[in-house]
């Protein structure tokens, strides 16, 4: 068996004796002999194929009938089961109707139409003479237009043509307002109560037990004019941890209340809601791109593509024991943008 490697393509050898260049190559033996099909030689097979094709077309008819049956006689009576059944029947009806025709035609083509392969010569896309003539014609056109001889005309035309489309861009200016400082503040304001999402009922500090998480919107958001736009910036996640485990930095000691902290729910990566709170590890996880924030380090990024901590909402408690915001966020929430600074 070792002899099998004899004459095998050892690179150095084959490069030394290349068989390229048309001298030492095999000649094309031409098309292999045609092998007749069963239906070509056996009339019974031919008849059988014919019946099969007809049967397939008949199956298609049945499929169409199934569709009509499902459409008119499987009523949608408010139950999901009925809808699922109708969908299945409509779909299978269509599938049979289509596959019956398709498979039938192809079967017909394969068994009953001629299966001799034919050869056709390729022609050049164009011939050289045409190309030369075309070149000449274009030359004449350019000459007669005089565009080469009159640079003043040419250059002013180019200038005009470059400018002319600009209005088509400018006209889209009113697609939206300018950003202004819209991204730099949110609905939150000093003294505004923290309320439950989506009901909008206020939250008492005593409601927030250790280990719990509240999804929070600002008071009055549900009645706001641009509710969704405001909500897209203002949503907050509220959690209570053991005060010992929080390590507030200087100047932020009073941003929480007795272990209760509120952080923006909008990811600093591309803006998905960072809503997954692991109450034992004190990690927040974004389900879209897995950025992980550590509550014990003021929501510093500990994993994933985000590069900035989640902004914290400073909170306090009012006279009635309800949680309120001390102010708006101290920095823009959500994904970074050029003017963020």
């Amino acid at each position: 068996m070792a002899d099998n490697s004899h004459g095998s393509p050892d690179t150095s050898v084959t490069v030394a004796t290349p068989g390229q260049g048309g001298v030492d190559t095999f000649t094309n033996p031409g098309l292999p002999p045609h092998r007749p099909r069963l239906a070509d030689t056996d009339p019974r097979a031919e008849k059988r194929a014919e019946r099969q094709v007809a049967l397939l077309f008949f199956i298609s008819v049945l499929g169409t009938l199934l569709f009509f049956f499902a459409y008119f006689f499987i009523p949608l009576n408010d139950t999901i089961e009925q809808l699922r059944l109708q969908n299945l029947a409509l779909g299978l009806g269509t599938a049979f109707a289509m596959l019956g025709i398709g498979v039938g035609i192809v079967h017909w083509a394969k068994t009953l139409m001629p299966d001799h392969e034919l050869t056709e010569e390729r022609h050049a896309v164009t011939d050289e003479k045409d190309r030369a003539e075309a070149e000449q014609i274009v030359g004449t056109i350019l000459d007669e237009s005089g565009i080469k001889r009159r640079p003043l005309i040419r250059n002013t035309l180019i200038g005009a043509a470059l400018l002319a489309p600009l209005p088509a861009i400018a006209i889209f200016r009113d697609l939206g307002p300018l950003p202004g400082d819209a991204l730099k503040h949110t609905f939150w304001d000093a003294g505004m109560r923290l309320t439950r999402d989506p009901s909008g009922t206020p939250i008492k500090a005593s409601d927030v037990t250790v280990g719990s998480a509240f999804h929070v919107i600002p008071e009055g958001l549900n009645e706001a004019e641009n509710k969704l736009e405001e909500k897209a910036k203002a949503v907050v996640l509220l959690m209570r941890l053991d005060p010992e485990s929080l390590n507030p930095s200087e100047g932020r000691e009073d941003w929480g209340y007795d272990g209760i902290v509120a952080y923006s729910k909008i990811c600093t990566h591309v803006g998905c809601p960072v809503a997954l709170y692991e109450q034992q590890t004190h990690h927040l996880l974004c389900p879209c791109h897995q950025s992980t924030f550590d509550l014990e380090q003021e929501c510093k990024v500990i994993f994933g593509p985000a590069a900035r901590p989640l902004p914290q909402l400073p909170i306090d408690v009012d006279d009635e024991g309800y949680l309120i915001a001390r102010s708006d966020f101290q920095e823009p929430v959500g994904p970074s943008f050029w003017e963020r600074g």
């Binding site: 409601d207 719990s212 590890t281």
Partner: peptide
Amino acid sequence: TGPQNMPVFNDAN
């Protein structure tokens, strides 16, 4: 009860 890492959703929440 908030088992494992699941937060607690108490009756006030």
